[in-house]
Amino acid sequence: MLRPDPATLRRMNDLAGKIRRGVLEQSRAANVGHIGSSLSVVEIIATLWGGLLRHAGTEQPNRDRFVLCKGHAALALYVAMHHAGLMDEATLGTYCADGTHLGVHPEACLAGIDVATGSLGQGLSVACGLAHGLRLRQSPARVFALLSDAECNEGQVWEAAQFAAHHRLSHLTAIIDANGSQALGPTRDVLNLAPMAARWEAFGWDAVEVDGHDTAQLAEALIPRGIGKPRLVVARTVLGKGVGYMENQVAWHYLPMSAQQYEQALNGLEAVA
């Protein structure tokens, strides 16, 4: 899929709307935070789960693998899985409740989640192992890994980056959710990673930069170009995208919403729709 057809694009955009609303609903119901990060990845998740991932959520050995390295955005993934028919509404409603398997960070016991994540910097290495093993098994499966920009502070990310380039894992795509924000401040102030794409290029990746809220751009960018290099997509995003008062506000990395803020957020979404 280089350029998605209009029907696929509509499906992806429709899914993005549902994910954004679902993130707000479940965050409010559970009264937990990490809302801003879940909202910044909405279109990336919608592009993958709205048509790009092959055999997602099945036990097919040749299914594409998706590793949510930035595990704290799992809520967006849960909502996508719900709309993909992998999880009923009642299960989704257990998000962060006692006894749930839907914690803030994803567990691997759920169909559709191959890798449990939550500790930043470790997911891309697992994605490399998956990609290397799948290729040895002559599988056509592709591997997609979604990292946060601040996750690239971790040294292990660059160990994995070297490995993927050296072994020409051209069926591996890493996406950076470049929302420019991390726990204690803007990434440029905490540990500046600019220029992000150039850094990955220097490590031997085929890097491209896109608008991370544009499903058409994402769908086109996410597919490796078969040039013997792993693909790196810097997805420029906005923390808290879609909720005016959250956008680019570092506090929404952690904060839960009050009832009033929740209403305001939903009204804002409706106004946009």
Binding site: P61, V126, A127, G129, L130, L134, Q156, E159, A160, H166
Partner: peptide, 24 residues
């Protein structure tokens, strides 16, 4: 085909092994 020297990168090695084990 079943040997990898991952370089001086033990953390990455543990992650790669995890992914390899996941595909059998």
């Amino acid at each position: 085909d079943r040997f990898l020297n991952v370089g001086v990168a033990e953390q990455n090695m543990a992650g790669i092994a995890t992914g390899l084990a996941m595909v059998g």
